[in-house]
Design a protein around this nucleic acid. Structure first.
Lengths: 126, 126
DNA sequence: GCTTGACTTCGAGTGCGCTCCAACTGCGAG
DNA sequence: CTCGCAGTTGGAGCGCACTCGAAGTCAAGC
């Protein structure tokens, strides 16, 4: 048994496709993944851990461009943790705003739903 | 003063661009907008009201394709209000799931934030 | 030894939702 | 009367985030 996970295993684990995993590596979101003797990727724990964070960033709407900014900070060393923190906190604020806008907009749709329910109840009692 | 609003006025009101408004009409999200004697669009109250709903649908992540399905139901008459209601309720469920996923994913990012704060506090006290 | 299937690379293609360009028209202000 | 601006059309283009096709390699199972 080889060390680390294959691209297919990581795909299954993260919910990303193998295509996307290779593309993430290509654009620099992942560091070059080590290969086995046959040239196949073996993802290490730290690669998978990074993907855990990256997928959460994506899922909360962070653009790939900004994820890349973050990763470049990570690569640059530990002296810029304040910058990373700031980036994450900014994103956090964005997501919270996003959530409250969703709630606000959903309320409008809810009113429409209520209206339709009213029509249908009225029909019922005809 | 003409009846109704110009495309620019509606753009300002809805936050959509004039380009997008024309495109919505073109793809069928809006019924053909009446024109003044010079061929310029004059949006009626009902057009703007529909846009109010459409923008909330979009903002909550409904694909244009599905908005179109809804509008086609609206155009088909009042006998399918049950279908419209179902579509809206389904979207409601989707949005609620979306919100809770955002919250769940944000929690992971929050943990990272907490970690960084910890590092920085430790540095501070060095 | 051959097949199957998961992997490799590179570059091209896709779907979505706009966004813009070019060329033109018509209205109101100065 | 001219200028500038807001509008018109049809079709092309764009940015994003993947997604796929083609052609090839390798290893394990029958």
């Amino acid at each position: 048994m080889e060390e680390g996970l294959s691209v297919g295993e990581v795909a299954a684990k993260t919910g990303l496709t193998a295509y996307t995993l290779r593309w993430y590596e290509q654009v620099g979101l992942l560091d070059p993944i080590p290969r086995d003797h046959a040239g196949r990727r073996r993802y290490r724990l730290r690669d998978v851990e990074r993907l855990d964070l990256l997928t959460k960033m994506r899922a909360t709407g962070m653009p790939v461009r900004e994820m890349l900014r973050y990763i470049e900070l990570v690569r640059a060393g530990t002296h810029n943790r304040r910058d990373r923190l700031e980036l994450l906190e900014q994103h956090r604020t964005t997501v919270l705003r996003q959530i409250s806008e969703l709630e606000r907009d959903l309320a409008v749709i809810d009113r429409k739903i209520t209206r339709y329910r009213g029509y249908l109840d009225a029909e019922q009692t005809d």
